[in-house]
Amino acid sequence: MITVIDYDTGNTRNVKNALDFLGVENQLTSKPTDILNSDGLILPGVGAFKKAVDALNERKLVPVIQQAANQGIPILGICLGMQLLFDKSYEFGESDGLGLIDGEVVPIPDNLGVKVPHMGWDKNISVKADPLADGFDGQFSYFVHSYYVKTAEKNILSFVDYGVKIPSIVRRRNVIGFQFHPEKSG
């Protein structure tokens, strides 16, 4: 059973639609026992970092997700959900994330001749062989974000070139992040 973590963020329905379309057994819930008994977790996310952290805290989900990660349950964060996996973000002031991967979330520089937000289809370039990321090498995925993750190279499986190197797939053990929207990259 794949659990899409429900914390009232924008795109949960689209993630669920994609899983339904693929015939993957899934549920949308914020119940700790359901989350901790899942075969895999998806943490979606759209909008601002701080609001999302507040929404997770209101539902007391931060320690639950951290425990799931420690138990070895595969966790996939999508877009803002990926950014939430890191230590902290500077979007609208500084706020702490889940701290599952070392790194922080910073604004995409807007003085590099690129437009912000980074919105549209961009090409993934693999930097590390991993069965999770290999299929995305050279493929376009749909991105929409104004902040990006700064993290150690060892955590980066692939990136896109947007004036800066924006990590598009990150991984630390069972914790995985996609900066793009797989559910919108059909």
Partner: peptide, 26 residues
């Protein structure tokens, strides 16, 4: 949205944050 997996933009007669929310939820 249940069968087409690409970005969808909706316009026309959106007057409030509630209008936006119901479309985003959909």
């Amino acid at each position: 949205a249940s069968r087409v997996f690409m970005p969808l933009t909706v316009g026309g007669g959106i007057h409030s944050v509630d209008d936006m929310q119901s479309l985003l939820k959909a």
